[in-house]
Write a protein that binds this DNA or RNA. Structure first.
Length: 249
DNA sequence: TAGGCCATCTGGTCCT
DNA sequence: AGGACCAGATGGCCTA
């Protein structure tokens, strides 16, 4: 099959087949037609359908074939929409700090979204911490030009050459317990994280925004996650631009 | 075998 | 009117 769903997913899905000759599609459609002929709705819940007759009336005028064509067209559009959504989800997975590879089961959709949220929060707090640190290093307002130069240079450098990396050990010991950092159970790259594994449920958003990772009491890493902070890992190319964007502010 | 995850179909609603 | 978006239903696959 050439569908992108089958290319990105190990499951055996066959959309084209479903459109053309799927038993399910035919069965459903026949049931639908039978319902229409007997005047019995397939579902009880259609509170608004009584008032708005627009498309329903138009559909009533269609022949069986026309109705089926319309249904197939709508199904195809919906399938494409979902495929696009899945592609976007795959794109998100690619930039997530999580082991990837053919032997690694990919993150579920919900895990991807939750992990992405935490990752963003972590990056934000790392950035804030760096800004604070640079401010401390260069002191008061008189040195702001130097600090800005450092920031600019940092944002212009390739991700792999970011000075943040060399600062990572001292930063971790500076802002928190390294033991907490290193004693964090490392993720077995072959085990998919569940929502609980990712350390959820997360605190309410206002709290997170105020002090996302409780950095004041140490650099907090989410349980079970490989340390994805910008200090410990070279940034992926696609996130480097984001990083430099924030730095440029 | 139960539960989780997913793809697909479907009808309703909203928007252009 | 047509398309996009959404949520519910359904059934298949996989894993513990």
């Amino acid at each position: 099959m050439d569908s992108d769903a089958s290319s990105t997913c190990s499951r055996s899905s066959s959309p084209e087949l479903a459109v053309d000759s799927s038993f399910f599609s035919n069965k459903v459609f026949q049931a639908y037609c039978a319902d229409r002929e007997t005047g019995q709705p397939r579902s009880e819940k259609s509170p608004q359908s009584t008032g708005s007759g627009g498309k329903s009336c138009a559909r009533a005028d269609l022949s069986k074939d026309g109705l089926q064509d319309l249904r197939l067209k709508v199904n195809s559009r919906e399938r494409k929409r979902m495929h696009d959504l899945n592609q976007a989800m795959d794109g998100l997975r690619e930039v997530m700090p999580y082991a990837q590879g053919p032997s690694v089961r990919k993150l579920s959709k919900i895990s991807t979204l939750l992990l992405a949220r935490n990752y963003i929060l972590m990056l934000s707090s790392s950035l804030e911490e760096m800004k604070k640190l640079v401010g401390d290093i260069y002191g008061a307002s008189g040195q702001s030009h130097s600090a800005r130069r450092v920031l600019l240079r940092t944002s212009a450098a390739p991700a792999s050459q970011l000075p943040l990396l060399s600062l990572a050990p001292s930063l971790h010991s500076l802002v928190g317990s390294t033991s907490q950092h290193t004693s964090t159970p490392t993720v077995a790259p072959h085990s998919p994280p569940s929502a609980g594994y990712l350390g959820f449920p997360a605190p309410p958003l206002p709290t997170l925004l105020k002090d996302p990772l409780h950095l004041s009491s140490g650099y907090r890493h989410f349980p079970g996650m490989p340390c994805p902070c910008s200090l410990c890992q070279p940034l992926p190319a696609s996130t480097a631009s984001l990083h430099s964007l924030s730095m440029g502010k």
